[in-house]
Design a protein around this nucleic acid. Structure first.
Length: 293
RNA sequence: GGGAGUGUAGCGAAGUCUGGCUAAACGCGACGGACUGUAACUCCGUUCCUUCGGGUUCGUAGGUUCGAAUCCUACCGCUCCCA
């Protein structure tokens, strides 16, 4: 079975550095599992590895689409499976590094994702409607599903309606199964928060605002890329509605909350995940890989 | 020294005139949680203490009252204005 190392963890926990170190040590290549680093133009705000770092170790699933494009877990799975096969065929170790727990979970899932026939037009039509109205439709279409979804969560209700309307279809092909070593990087909460706060300042100095302006011009909050933390907080500032300090504080706040959500996700949604002490993650992971490979 | 205002849970802030329905709205923060096709999304819960029976609160100390964050007195702190 194909062996796979998965490095997860909250934002600013040091996943990229750890992945590079492990890739160098164990002849690996890195696959990013990150819902925002897939965008070409989002570099600074997504804390993407630099071009220099990419010359050290080959990276995959970074810079693969334009910032106005849509992307989904299913796209990720397809491409990640391909990248893994490619890396393995060249005799190297695939290392997944990413903060998008949902992508990681889907990649590791033994069940293939169900496919639902639906299009963007349908989704935007559903979006126009009020939540109670949507729930009524879902209730009549499929009451079991209606009871299962979070009734306050419009996004999930819309998805449930699509499933109820079109039904689920078997995935076209069976996905490969992987033999995985899954780790998560853990820091004391206050240290993680400090890392997040100071990284925001570094990003600003590196030219984050130019990128944010770029995304604002491309559609701001209306496009998927415009929902990324590190950009959306600066739209009000760029429009002249808030001060820079307020925007930075907001970004730090959002990052901290995001980190919390990631931690919750990893704790409960990724079975078998081994926590690594942030300060010792390189040594700890190297030891584990050595005894596992 | 004189005048005006103010002190409420981690923070901000209602409630005070018209005492009981107030362990005290709401916002923020913090913490916990959900999440199989937007996931850096979207959504939910807890937040004085508790052995879950209760207990102790609204600057402090008294007082009025069956009953006080709310009324009265004194004191303390903070802010602003005049000196």
């Amino acid at each position: 079975m194909t062996k796979l190392v998965v490095i997860a963890g909250p934002t600013a926990s040091g996943k990229s550095d750890l992945a590079i170190a492990m890739a160098q040590k164990f002849n690996g290549e890195i696959i990013s599992a990150d819902a925002m680093q897939i965008y070409r133009e989002l570099d600074i705000g997504t804390a993407k590895v630099t071009a220099d770092e990419q010359t050290l170790v080959p990276h995959h699933l970074i810079d693969i689409i334009d910032m106005t494009d849509q992307f989904s877990v299913a796209d990720f799975i397809t491409r990640a499976d391909e990248a893994i096969a490619d890396i393995v065929s060249r005799g190297k170790l695939p290392i997944i590094a990413g903060g998008t727990g949902f992508y990681v979970k889907a990649l590791l899932g033994e069940q293939p994702l169900d496919f639902v026939a639906s299009d963007a037009q349908e989704v935007s039509d559903l979006k126009q409607r009020e939540l109670p109205d949507l729930m009524i439709e879902l209730q009549t279409l499929d009451s079991t599903l209606a009871n299962k979804v979070d009734q306050h969560n419009k996004q999930r209700v819309i998805r449930a309606i699509q499933i109820a309307r079109h039904g689920v279809h078997e995935a076209k092909q069976v996905r490969p199964k992987y033999d995985t070593l899954v780790v998560g990087i853990d820091w004391p909460r206050d240290i993680l928060y400090e890392r997040i706060n100071s990284r925001a300042q570094i990003m600003i100095a590196a030219g984050l605002l130019t990128e944010a302006q770029c995304i604002l011009d491309a559609g701001g909050g209306n496009i998927q890329a415009g929902k990324a933390i590190g950009y959306k907080e600066f739209f009000p500032y760029l429009r002249g509605d808030t001060t820079l300090d307020e925007a930075i504080a907001q970004m730090q706040q959002d990052s901290r909350r995001y980190a919390k959500r990631q931690l919750t996700y990893l704790r409960h949604q990724i079975p078998g995940l081994i926590w690594l002490d942030g300060a010792q993650s390189q040594a700890e992971l190297a030891a584990r890989i050595e005894s596992w490979v």
